[in-house]
Design a protein around this nucleic acid. Structure first.
Lengths: 154, 154
DNA sequence: GCTATTTTTGACATTGCTTTTCATTTTCAA
DNA sequence: TTGAAAATGAAAAGCAATGTCAAAAATAGC
């Protein structure tokens, strides 16, 4: 396996496991490596597919449990999209973007805003939160759907 | 039924139905009245409970379908929380708040930020979106959990 | 390096919410 | 009033997430 891995996060996993008296298995390590190398959010299924290629003996359950573990350790965040699928994301992705979502046609546009991120940090500070991640979704009509309505279910 | 109802939204429902060649039933009207009177997000179940008190002959399915209809009409937004329950919210609630969520203990704090809302409008404008609603969630450790870890699943 | 103890794992079952189905009823336009 | 199209209720199906439990693997203590 290549070594372009986020070692700091792998260490955090180890530390968390140690603090909780949990064990550090090879499989968990494989999952962690693949997960924290990723930058974008991944469903359990998607990560499972990647994991299988490295070690086919790792089951879906294990991937699922590992992700929930990372989440409890504060190293991952889960979110559920409209399609009903839960996706996980490392807490410090290299690049974070937010979403504009059209409620008519379902189109999704990604955007970034430094200003909004700064305001979020300010708010977190005010409430004494240690900010790990965030989720911002703007819902509305896209340019097309404002005029001639388009239906997702025609 | 009292008349402190958001008539503009009821009219929008009618217009949408007309545009789509759909029919306007009394039951749908009852559901709409109760829904748009609400200010906060409601699960299907919660709205169904309210509806039953007015007209016990309205089924869960009908409430479900009405909410999805409002959504397609751009009058409601649905979101799924971590507990797996989908909640719906009128597109223009009188008062909108966002959430700070502790990833360890699950605590949720509500907050409001005029500045962030303004920035959101700016972004929507840049992408030619007609903004209806938004969802902003900040994830992190709350004040307590930053120090002594607290587990949701001990 | 062993062994005992505890955690992890895999496969499958179960759960719980959401969505669809279909026969029946209601709406609406002509 | 009547017929075609849509809405409805009840129940079933769908589906992702989560729980179960026996077997396997990982540490700690020797």
């Amino acid at each position: 396996m290549k070594s372009n891995v986020k070692n700091s996060e792998l260490k955090s996993v180890r530390r968390y496991l140690y603090e909780k008296g949990l064990k550090h298995s090879l499989k968990r390590h494989t999952i962690a490596e693949l997960f924290f190398r990723e930058d974008k959010h991944l469903s359990i299924e998607e990560l499972y597919d990647k994991v299988k290629k490295i070690d086919p003996d790792i089951s879906f359950s294990t991937v699922y449990r590992a992700l929930r573990l990372f989440e409890r350790a504060g190293l991952a965040v889960s979110r559920r999209f409209i399609d009903g699928i839960t996706k996980f994301e490392p807490v410090h992705p290299k690049e974070h973007h937010d979403h504009l979502i059209c409620v008519r046609c379902g189109k999704i546009i990604e955007f970034k805003s430094k200003k909004i991120e700064d305001l979020q940090k300010e708010i977190a500070r005010a409430y004494k939160f240690e900010l790990l991640n965030h989720r911002l979704e703007l819902y509305g009509y896209c340019n097309k759907c404002r005029r001639g309505p388009v239906n997702r279910k025609p």
